[in-house]
Design a protein around this nucleic acid. Structure first.
Length: 105
DNA sequence: TTCCTGACGCTCG
DNA sequence: GCGAGCGCCAGGA
């Protein structure tokens, strides 16, 4: 039983659409210390042009840490937003700890 | 069923 | 190089 299976099972407990699950699973696939843009994530989810909808999905992310939504940043390199605990500051902190961010601020 | 909104991206001035 | 505006898809009211 892979960890991914566990996530899929948990997501199955929520009334998520296929698109939402694809986005969350794609996000879950982001390695530690690695970042992905919303556009890239949308592409991985199978809808390259749905980057706008990706943000909506991330906001409804039920597992902010298990599913590393903080590793998703804007294509211009900026942090973007974060609805999880601590907001963008927490997001930057997590990225910094994982080595995905060179420096704070 | 339709309209509005959103953790964004790209193009134009 | 920077800022503003328009466009993209999906979900919620």
């Amino acid at each position: 039983m892979t960890a991914r299976k566990e996530i899929e099972r948990k997501l199955d407990q929520f009334e998520f659409t296929a698109f939402q699950r694809r986005v969350l699973l794609a996000c879950y696939g982001i390695k530690e210390g690695e970042t992905l843009s919303y556009k890239e994530l949308a592409k991985k989810a199978g809808s390259p042009k749905a980057y706008r909808a990706v943000g909506t999905v991330m906001k409804n992310n039920p597992f902010p840490i298990t599913i590393p939504c903080h590793r998703v940043i804007k294509s211009d390199g900026k942090i973007g937003n974060y609805s999880g605990t601590g907001g963008v500051e927490r997001k930057k902190e997590l990225l910094f700890k994982e080595g995905a961010l060179d420096k704070q601020d």
